[in-house]
Design a protein around this nucleic acid. Structure first.
Length: 476
DNA sequence: ATGTCC
């Protein structure tokens, strides 16, 4: 990105003042190196989002931002229904409510290392992964609707997981306002056999160890110590969310034309929040969020079963479950006035800080855990939301390393088998049904996650608590 | 991300 087009408001904050059809500024949080390396498309997309009706305060891009469909991945934008605000399917993303959950295992590196190969093979045998994978829990229509309404709470009632898991899941495991009637039959049909599956692309299940504690107070509150083994699960709403995105994008393109919303880009198709179409999308999107929550809950159950085979006394407890592709109705202070806003976070994690009223009691002192997955074979980080009195980007942070090369370019440059062998030499075991998928996810196809989280911290979005490195990665 | 083009 040409940084001469940006004003540097502070060391890690870059601003495009409104010009042309922009209603608000565009703000990018990043180091000079990250912003210079960003695709020009991020500038274009962040400024075009700033043109949408009812946008409040600014259009934001996180340090891991890259080119997405309509909105940048790593984009945050909030809209006010009373000021003609909109909801956009492209502003949530196709993988609705994709997210990360991290479990503590009570085990240490010394417990895992001798059985690493067996554990990798057991997990790969138990966790369905890959684009065509199906699970063991087909859902007939009435069950499908119950799942779409109940999310992780539904999963718990069906025997997947423990009651305490819900206390450590955003929305307490169930997104309110889900309306299965707004989800097409086609979307439900696609999901029928996909519950409890990881999916493909950048989705993974990783066994990780804590290699560094960077904030002793937060780490202690999160129950993390150096050498601890954690399991992180990154996945979303599979075929259902994708189909909902496809269905509503098409409707929103027609609807925007009829509603007289001038779109700077057809990929920014949207509907007024107070319109029937806008409300229908929100009902469907929230149902997809429950699908993702239920999916991660089932995968948690499968993970626990696998660990119990090798470690009969192991007890896996949930640290937290966060989504990073959402639109949520939240209260935020804008120019000193509290307003109800619809906050789109696409490839961006909610990062509410200490004292935020929406957080469960155990996170009131620290702020919520912000779970940042690196690329395959590289570090992940656990952060905590920043202090509320200087909330940035409506309480949001980055979600991962962010791509630096396209999938196509990555698969051209690397061979999957070679990538697996190189990581094995570093003590990291990869299990995947797709060597092409592994090539697309090669570590060097992503930005440096360490630089991304450092920028997030310096920009005041969140505070780094712990660094994790992978031992085993089950890839889709 | 995705029955990787209904």
């Amino acid at each position: 990105m040409d940084i001469s087009k940006l004003q540097r408001r502070s060391e890690f904050e870059w601003v495009v003042a409104p010009y042309g059809r922009m209603r608000v500024p565009a703000v990018i949080y990043a180091s000079v190196e990250l912003v210079a390396a960003m695709d020009e498309k991020v500038y274009q997309q962040a400024t075009q989002v700033a043109m949408l009706p009812g946008i409040v305060q600014a259009s934001y891009a996180m340090p891991d931002a890259h080119w997405g469909y309509g909105f940048p991945i790593g984009g945050v934008a909030a809209f006010d229904a009373e000021q003609g605000g909109v909801v956009s399917a492209g502003g949530v993303g196709f993988d609705i409510s994709c997210g990360v959950r991290t479990l503590r295992t009570g085990l240490t590196w010394h417990d895992i290392e001798p059985v690493k190969t067996r554990l990798a093979d057991s997990l790969f045998a138990r966790i369905p992964a890959g684009v065509y994978s199906t699970g063991q829990y087909p859902l007939a229509p009435p069950e499908m609707d119950a799942m779409l309404r109940g999310g992780a709470q539904w999963a718990l009632q069906r025997g997947f997981g423990e009651a305490a898991d819900l206390d450590c899941t955003e929305e307490h495991g169930c997104m309110a306002g889900a309306d299965p009637a707004q989800v097409s039959e086609r979307a439900k049909r696609r999901q029928r056999d996909e519950m409890g599956t990881l999916g493909s692309g950048n989705h993974y299940l990783e066994v990780q160890h804590v290699t560094e504690i960077l904030d002793r107070h937060i780490a202690e509150a999160f129950g993390l110590r150096a050498g601890d083994i954690l399991v992180s699960i990154h996945c979303g709403s599979r075929g259902l969310g994708h189909q909902i995105g496809t269905d509503y994008l098409k409707e929103m393109l027609q609807g925007a034309r009829q509603a007289g919303i001038g779109l700077p880009d057809r990929e920014l198709a949207c509907a007024h929040l107070d319109s029937l179409l806008g409300r229908r999308y929100l009902g469907a999107m929230r149902a997809a969020a429950n699908c993702a929550l239920a999916n991660r809950q089932i995968l948690t159950h499968l993970t626990r079963e696998t660990f119990r085979e090798l470690f009969p006394d192991s007890r896996l407890t949930l640290l937290y479950d966060v989504s990073h592709n959402t639109c949520k109705e939240e209260t935020h202070a804008v120019d000193g006035l509290k307003r109800r806003l619809f906050v789109h976070r696409k490839g961006a994690t909610r990062a509410f800080g200490p004292g935020h009223p929406d957080l469960p009691p155990q996170f009131r002192d620290t702020g919520q855990p912000v779970l940042i997955g690196g690329s395959m074979g590289t570090a992940s980080y656990i952060l905590a939301g920043a202090a509320g009195d200087k909330e940035n980007a409506f309480g949001s942070a980055c979600h991962g390393a962010g791509r630096s090369l396209s999938r196509h370019e990555a698969s051209r440059r690397w061979n999957g088998r070679t990538v697996v062998d190189e990581l094995r030499a570093k003590g990291i075991l990869i299990r995947s049904p797709s060597m092409r998928g592994v090539a697309e996810e090669a570590p060097l196809a992503y930005k440096d996650v360490g630089a991304v989280v450092a920028a997030a911290e310096h920009a005041g979005l969140a505070r780094i608590a712990a660094r994790l490195e992978p031992l085993i990665s089950i890839k889709g």
